[in-house]
Design a protein around this nucleic acid. Sequence first.
DNA 1: GATAAAATTTCACATGATGTTCACACAAAT
DNA 2: ATTTGTGTGAACATCATGTGAAATTTTATC
Lengths: 224, 224
Amino acid sequence: MYRILVVDDEEKIREVVREYGEFSGHKVYEAWDGIQAVKMCRENEFSIIIMDIMMPRLDGFSAVKEIRKYTNAPVLMLSARGEEYDKLFGFELGVDDYVTKPFSPKELMARINAIISRDKGRGNKKQLDFNGLNIDLDGRSVYVDGNKVDMTPKEYDLLVYMAKNKNRALTREQLLRDIWGYDFYGDDRTIDTHIKMLRSNLGPYRNYVVTMRGIGYKFEAENE
Amino acid sequence: MYRILVVDDEEKIREVVREYGEFSGHKVYEAWDGIQAVKMCRENEFSIIIMDIMMPRLDGFSAVKEIRKYTNAPVLMLSARGEEYDKLFGFELGVDDYVTKPFSPKELMARINAIISRDKGRGNKKQLDFNGLNIDLDGRSVYVDGNKVDMTPKEYDLLVYMAKNKNRALTREQLLRDIWGYDFYGDDRTIDTHIKMLRSNLGPYRNYVVTMRGIGYKFEAENE
DNA sequence: GATAAAATTTCACATGATGTTCACACAAAT
DNA sequence: ATTTGTGTGAACATCATGTGAAATTTTATC
């Protein structure tokens, strides 16, 4: 599932991308001009950004330039037929491809897939998102509403394990076996203490960790 | 001036690339197989790597896989007409383009230029900047607030490796394997000592090297 | 090839962070 | 009301890292 941001003032274009994107199982977000796009990129991470060049308020190139301060997500530029522009300038901003309007939706999706595949190989970060709770798996760090939260290794491991097995009831035995290791002889209740610490670190999202009385715990949340 | 590495066992191919590359004012380096290429990449930084797939000793894909431990320079793969291979696999390794032999030298150079322009936009310079901490990869030298800092080879390698993998938690095993080599049998704690030296050399930026308790270390900074 | 210098590695100890246990209070189920 | 299970704080045990110094290896110099 990719997170696609399409930026265009034409409703029609956004609609096409949304339709085909969602058909392929991706999540499509929309912005209607550069300003809006920058704002969204400051707050979210996208797999790819489809950006029109000619837009009111803030044009596509300027928007990309601004966006590059926050993310290096791949960018595909849309241009109207006959529009003249400096491709090289785009490359310097990290633009990955150009598509001329009108385009065939199928071709667009193919290019999107190609770009994302290539980008993945460059080592983009893997992460888990649950609204304001964000886990950076490569950096082993956790963010709550954008603020980094310090966690001990066990707390982090516990959180990631539960998040990866979200919406499943996990027994204490299972947690001990998979996180502590098969050779742990300690008390069941050790987990409770770590859950306590984890909850206090999750702050407003402490209720994502649900107690399953008599069983264990469950991580209950939807990836946004 | 780009630094182009062409890897091919065919003398003819290397010659064409060298000729056209130098005509365009670039510096062209040559390797005749994968092993040679890996060795050169470990010691030097290239703007782009032109890599044949079918080669004696070590094939192109395996070579790229190995090279990715040292650099993320863009790669253009050369394949003989009719050769079948998995493009997707290449993308995962960060392969930027494919060209089928025989090719027109002019087209090859055009593609090289396109890739490098794109790569530049992604911020792939021969130097790494983190505010007042500056690493010159060509000169293997480090500057702190403009002043050159003397580092031992291991300290430098450690810093560069961590900087290239910034914001990723790196285990001691990973660091030992990738910097010391797979055949290092020494103590884990060796790293700690080098980290200590590195930190003291980084002066005001010592806190860029973050301890990940129970895991290893992480280089935490944004290239301005 | 011998010697000195530099770099690397090992090691032991102190310190602080983390993990575990436990007792008690409290809440939920029957 | 009784039983059973969980939340919590504090005490305790354990573990990982920072550090200095010594031992070893590598490199440079004569």
